[in-house]
């Protein structure tokens, strides 16, 4: 049986920048590599991305493989699946790390199937068991109600996707040395089934939720589009942006791309103000990483208060205007 060695990270380059998730993977990968005494390798797919490759070295990789190919946004996932499968066949890593992202979700399961191994999706913690040397994979299950820890004795490589924001990103150290190697994988046309017709990015005005320091989130309690204008104003005053639970999306009050939670975006602002939100686990899964959580809800028994640092029991229609006014005043001084 072949010797599997090394942790392989599938890096993502978005608009010529190393994606945040890739930095997070690099810090996890480094940790795992150290405890296993194995090298940390990274795979980057794209065109003229040598600069990014250097950055990945600085961020902790010992070796970076560059595959010349289109960016994910403009290519059929089948191509990526084929490329990465091919790469794994040649590099024989013991662990493959991807992000729980558009691309990671698409690739990991099929990669595992093709390599006859196993995949653990959406992990929030990875450690090597000191005795068994097994990779312990922690994942939220049942919508976030519980955490489960898995390990696989027989399967290699182990395919993992990590939930964004579950670890701190790696810090660059420009003094680090490492190799960069360009790399090719033969991909048969037959392995690409059908075609990608278009990729549409629905630009949302203002700050990206993932980058926001302050998020004002509205839920079913907001009751319609008008209420959200109020939240927009508060967000504006606090230099933040607006997010939503699934209900306003389902109701068509707000776009789906603003949904926060298990199946939406994972955010971690300094301040998360949940307005008219009951606090279902599937939603909290997306925001429980926030530094401070404030809940405004008219139902004193709403679960959200159990997961908030500050709570206000009352109708948001009274609360928000007063909050806006007071914040304006305070911030002016």
């Amino acid at each position: 049986m072949a010797e599997y060695n090394g942790i392989l990270i599938c890096g993502e380059v978005v608009d010529g920048k190393i994606a945040a998730i890739t930095r997070e993977l690099l810090s996890v990968g480094r940790k795992l590599g150290n405890s296993l005494g194995q090298p940390l390798k990274a795979l980057l797919i794209g065109k003229n991305i040598e600069e990014e490759a250097k950055e990945v070295i600085a961020l902790g990789a010992d070796k970076v493989y560059i595959i010349d190919g289109p960016t994910f946004a403009n290519s059929h996932p089948d191509l990526y699946v084929a490329m990465i499968t091919g790469a794994c066949d040649q590099l024989l890593p013991s662990i493959v790390l991807l992000g729980q992202t558009d691309i990671g979700r698409d690739i990991a399961p099929r990669l595992a199937a093709r390599l006859k191994t196993t995949a653990a999706m959406d992990c929030v913690d990875l450690v090597i068991d000191s005795e068994s040397k097994l990779l312990l994979q922690t994942r939220p299950v049942y919508g976030g109600n519980a955490l489960a820890v898995w390990a696989s004795e027989s399967c290699q490589p182990q395919i993992i996707t990590m939930r964004p924001r579950s670890v701190a990103p790696a810090e660059p150290d420009t003094s680090r040395k490492g190799q960069i190697e360009s790399f090719t994988v033969e991909v048969k046309d037959s392995s690409i089934k059908g075609k990608l017709v278009e990729t549409v990015k629905e630009e949302v005005a203002g700050i990206k939720l993932e980058d926001a320091k302050v998020i004002i989130s509205g839920g079913g309690g907001i009751g319609g589009t008008e209420g959200f204008e109020m939240l927009q104003e508060l967000a504006h005053v606090l230099g933040g942006t607006v997010g939503v639970t699934r209900v306003p999306c389902d109701e068509g009050w707000m776009p789906m791309t603003l949904e926060i939670g298990q199946t939406g975006r994972i955010v971690g602002p300094d301040l998360y103000i949940a307005v008219g939100i009951s606090g279902a686990v599937q939603h909290m899964a997306g925001c429980s990483g926030s530094k401070h959580i404030v809940a405004i809800n008219k139902d004193p028994d709403a679960h959200i208060f159990k997961e908030a640092d500050f709570g206000l029991v009352g109708d948001y229609k009274q609360a928000i205007p007063a909050l806006i006014e007071k914040c304006k005043a305070l911030l002016a001084t």
Binding site: H76, T101, D102, G194, K195, L196, V197, E198, T199, V200, K201, E202, E203, T257, R265
Partner: peptide, 8 residues
Amino acid sequence: LDGYQVFV
């Protein structure tokens, strides 16, 4: 995450 893709 930011929109959609169309495949045939």
